[in-house]
Amino acid sequence: MLSKSQAKTFFVGGTVVFSAAFLALTYDSMQQIPALTHDDKITPAVERGKMIWEDNNCMGCHTLFGEGAYYAPELTKVVERRGKPWLKLFLKDPQKMFPGERKMVQYGFNEAQIDDVIAFLEWCGNVDLQGFPAKPPLAGKVQNVVSSGGATGKPQPELFRTICVACHAVGGAGGTVGPPLDDVRNRKSRADMMAWIANPQSIKPGTPMPKIDMSEAQLNEIVDFLLSLSGSVPAAVAPAQPQPTFE
C-alpha cells in the first residue's frame, strides 16, 4: 500500500507538472488571442465602452460571452441581432422600450457614451467564440418557416426595418413579442394605426408596446407601408381560430 511519503510525492509532483502545463498553454493562448479577438480593432471607443460596461456592472444582470448573471439577455451578438438604431433608442431610455416589463437601470447615457457601448459590443460580436452562441438547433422544427410570399408591399421604411421588427414579424421575419403584421390592414383602419403607434398607452394602458418618438412624416411612412401589405399570417403563426360550437 502507498506510503505517506509516496502520497506526498504524488501531490507535489502532480501539482508541479500540471501547473507547468497550464502555464505553457496560457503562454500559447496569449499568442493566439490577438488574432482570434481582432485585437487590432480595439479602438479608443471600444476601450471606453469596456470601461462603461465595467463601471456600471452590466455583467450583474446580462451575460457577455456567456459570462455574467442570467437576469437580462446575452449581449455578445446583440448588435447583429438588434441593429444600431434600435440599441441607440433603447439605451437612451431602456424602460420605455419595454413598459411594465423587467427593468433596466436608467443610466442616462449621453450620445457619445451610447456610441462607445455599441462599439464595444460590436467588437465583442466579432470575436471568434468557437461557435458560441450556437444557432438554436430545433428552431426550424418548432417555428413556421415562411417564405416572404405572404407579404408583398412597399419596401420596409428605415424605422420599421430597424426598430419595429424587433417585436413584430412581417413575412415570417421579425420578433414574436407583438403580433405579426402581414394582414394588419384587414384588422385596423388607417386612423386606428396612426393613433395606436403615436401613443399606445393612451389606447390600451399597460400594453408592452412602447411609444417611439418619430416625426409625422415617419409615422405616415410606416402606416403607408403597413396598409400596403397584402399578406395573410402564416397558419402556424396566426392565433388559433375559435372553434365552431354545436348548437
Binding site: 504524488f10 502532480g14 501539482t15 501547473s19 497550464f22 493562448s29 460571452f65 456567456g66 467564440l129
Partner: peptide, 22 residues
C-alpha cells in the same frame, strides 16, 4: 488534494471554451 490539482488546474479550461480562446 493531489487529485484536486491534477484535474482542477487544467480543468480551468472549461471556462475557456467560448470566450475567444484557442
Amino acid at each position: 488534494v493531489g487529485l484536486t490539482f491534477l484535474s482542477g488546474i487544467l480543468g480551468t479550461g472549461h471556462h475557456y471554451y467560448y470566450i475567444g480562446t484557442p
